[in-house]
Simulated scan of single mutants.
Amino acid sequence: MALTVLRPGTTAPAGPPAPPAPPAPGAAAAGALAPPGRSPLRVAVEVHQRAAGAGALVVMTLTGDLDASAGPHLRSALEQALLRTWSPRRPQDDAAAGASAAAVAPDVVVDLAAVPTADAAGGGLLLATLRRTTALGGRAAVVGADPAVERLLAAADTAGEVAARATLAEALSAWKAATPRAGTGPLATGSGARPGRQARSATA
């Protein structure tokens, strides 16, 4: 080992620089969840009870960007809504009560007026979530979508399971006029200007 002799009035040479401090816990995760320029998706759910036999109406209002991170939020919101509105019954129970053997699944409207951007992954996740409703016999629609977002959804909805409407009132009116209560037709584009938020109505 080399021995350094210090003359009076001198100081020891500086050692190697200290390694940088590790990032604070959770810093990397926060950046991954909310990258610069992106808004994390939030989902608000409203449930409206309607006349007997009509099934409930579920309105899911999305706020933020619809991308690949949206899946857990969408699935959780719909599952909670189904738990509150849909209770499948056994045919023997209905026969005893003199009722129909088919439980009435809720109709679901997704308000996209506060979704500025969407990508193919987010659009696919939204459609997959809504197909859970249509598979149970309910109907699904999106309203207030930006034209670019609406075109993306239309391209992905090859089975025509989700209707695109300008407003919630328009979606309910179309369902009220439809017979029977199944099938929404292809998701058509060009539904008009993006509307502002409007009062909820659950008359259909």
Rank of each mutant, 00 (worst) to 15 (best):
Q49A: 13
L127C: 04
V162P: 12
A70P: 01
P91E: 09
T61L: 07
V109E: 09
A145V: 06
L112A: 03
G98R: 02
A166Q: 14
L41C: 05
A118T: 10
S76C: 04
E46F: 01
A99G: 12
V59A: 09
V149T: 13
P40W: 07
A128L: 10
D111N: 11
P36H: 08
D67L: 08
R50P: 11
L83V: 13
L112W: 01
Q80R: 12
L127K: 03
G71I: 00
A159V: 09
G144Q: 02
L66V: 03
D65L: 06
P35A: 08
A145W: 02
A140L: 03
P72L: 08
A135P: 10
D93K: 01
G55C: 09
A140F: 00
A101W: 11
L126S: 00
T85W: 00
R50G: 13
A148N: 07
A148Y: 04
A121D: 15
R165L: 13
D119S: 06
Q92F: 14
D65V: 06
A34H: 15
L112Y: 07
L136W: 06
E161F: 06
R42N: 12
L57A: 07
A70Y: 05
G137P: 12
R50T: 13
A155T: 11
R90W: 10
A81V: 11
P35K: 11
V108K: 01
T133M: 02
G138N: 10
V110W: 00
G98D: 10
V45H: 00
E46V: 08
S76H: 14
A102T: 14
A121N: 12
M60S: 15
G98F: 03
A101T: 15
A54S: 15
L74A: 09
A121C: 12
V108I: 08
A121F: 10
G138P: 14
R89C: 11
A97D: 12
A120Y: 02
V59I: 12
T167L: 03
R38Y: 04
A166M: 08
A54F: 07
W86A: 14
L83F: 10
G64V: 04
S76Q: 13
V43I: 01
D107W: 02
V149W: 00
R151T: 13
R131F: 00
P35R: 12
V115R: 03
A97I: 07
A121T: 14
V109I: 15
E161G: 10
P40Y: 05
A96F: 06
A141N: 11
Q92S: 15
D146Q: 09
V45D: 15
S76W: 09
A54I: 01
T85G: 04
A118K: 03
L152A: 07
A166G: 14
G71A: 15
S100A: 13
D65T: 11
T134Y: 01
A70I: 06
R42G: 15
T129V: 05
A77E: 11
G64W: 02
A102N: 09
A141P: 15
L153S: 08
T85E: 03
A77Q: 11
G55A: 02
G122Q: 00
H48M: 07
V110C: 02
G71N: 04
L152F: 06
